[in-house]
Computed example of a mutant assay.
Amino acid sequence: MHDAIDMDADAFEALVIEELDKLPDDMVDGLDNVVFVVEDAPESGDDLFGVYEGFAITERGQYGMGELPDRIVVYRHAHLAACADIEQLRAEVHTTLVHEIAHFYGIDDAQLHELGWA
């Protein structure tokens, strides 16, 4: 076991933004009406790195103007507890972002595992 990384909310959010900026353009350019949010932990108490809240692009149908944005939430506490150093933290945040963005595109967990992304 290792000691959890100690990083305040502002520094963690800055790291998430840096990792988001490193993702390929073709992955993020298609995101429509999606916001990225950093929270400490899910209200449910579940041990999650992140979650996609919304409708995948493959399920949107008549989705249109006036819809609240979908949310991709990255949870700080789970990431910090799981990572031994900043490099591992960056890698885990990257994986979480790719995973949740994939859900936006309609790729489920089984497909992510098949692709080696989860």
Rank of each mutant, 00 (worst) to 15 (best):
M1P: 15
H2A: 15
H2E: 15
D3P: 11
D6Q: 14
D8E: 14
D10E: 15
D10T: 10
E13W: 09
L15R: 08
E19C: 08
D21P: 00
D25G: 05
D25Y: 11
M27D: 09
D29H: 11
A41F: 06
E43G: 01
E43Q: 08
S44R: 01
L48H: 03
F49K: 03
F49S: 03
V51Y: 02
E53Y: 05
G54R: 07
F55E: 14
I57W: 14
E59Y: 14
Q62P: 00
Y63N: 08
E67T: 02
D70L: 02
V74R: 00
R76C: 05
H77I: 09
A78Q: 12
H79A: 09
L80M: 07
A81S: 11
A81Y: 04
A81P: 00
C83G: 09
A84F: 13
A84E: 15
Q88D: 13
L89Q: 05
A91E: 11
V93R: 00
V93K: 00
H94W: 05
T96V: 06
T96Y: 03
T96L: 03
V98A: 06
V98C: 07
V98I: 12
H99I: 07
H99D: 05
A102F: 05
D109R: 09
Q111R: 14
L115F: 15
A118S: 13
